[in-house]
Amino acid sequence: MEFLNGFVALSNFVLVPAIAYGSQLALGALGVTLIYGILRFSNFAHGDTMAFGAMVTVLVTWAMQSIGISFGPLPTALLALPFGIAGAVLMVLMTDKMVYKFYREKKSKPVILVIVSMGVMFMMNGIVRVIIGPNEQQFRDGERFLIKAREFKNMTGLDEGLAIKSTQAITVVTAAIAVALLFWFLNKTRTGKSMRAYSDNEDLALLSGINPERVVAVTWIIVAALATIAGVLYGLDKSFKPFTYFQLLLPIFASAIVGGLGNPLGAIAGGFVVAFSEVMITYAWKKVLGYWLPDTLEPSGLVQLLSTDYKFAVSFMILIVVLLFRPTGLFKGKAY
């Protein structure tokens, strides 16, 4: 009983939130890693692409809510998601045409493209704030919980309750579907193979008749879709606030680098590594340890390694450790 109670408390406060957060980071990191693998630069505007896509989704959700469209127990935002993706796709294709293309044709060095992407980041940042404002926005509706803590207690007779928010379940399911589609696309379709070919060896891809502009456009479309999905899921799970997406950039890059930049599988693994580290290091273990340790060893303090205020420090630490000891990431990425 003691052990089970401890485990349920652990699931409630660590495992479930970390899995949901990890899925969101994984989706974000996939976008970063695809851009790095194919367009060969670190896209700092990724966080704000997420914010932009999520913003369009929020606006469409509000419009749907106001005319009475709903998705039953599921959040209306899922219905609005395709519109958000379309908006983000238009936005990134436009930025590519207007900004990145110019530097690509000049064959600019990656570091220049990184700086360019920072400019794009500030632009998008501003656009989002002008349209929707800098404040927190509420757009969640539908059922709040899949399992409520009290129901769980009644069901199992345990002292500890396990609450699973519907947004957490939706996050994991949606992320799984998106990732499955992406991997099928990259590995099985000709377009996906062209993208991999372009990532493997750009010169040869060009000399094999692969149209680079098409590969680039498809990459942007996929990245915009992933970013919007990640942004909307994060917004549903926590809340939508433009600035948080800018902050998310750090854990997202940490995820992509931990997994190995340019490696999609690594991005997913990295997302979970970062999410679990962050949640576990900022969690106060007093309760769980109280169940698991003998009474004499029960901790009197909170057993919290780091205050939640410092959660971004975890990503920093992971980044430093990885770059020092395994710069290519867990899976071999493209950055040597």
């Binding site: 379709t189 000709r190 377009t191 193979k193 070919a197 891809a205 094999s208 008749g209 692969i210 149209n211």
Partner: peptide, 15 residues
């Protein structure tokens, strides 16, 4: 198999 250009699978719709 990558080489021949203009394969049907390269068009997003047909994918």
């Amino acid at each position: 198999m990558m080489v021949p250009g203009d394969q049907i699978g390269e068009r997003l719709w047909d994918t």
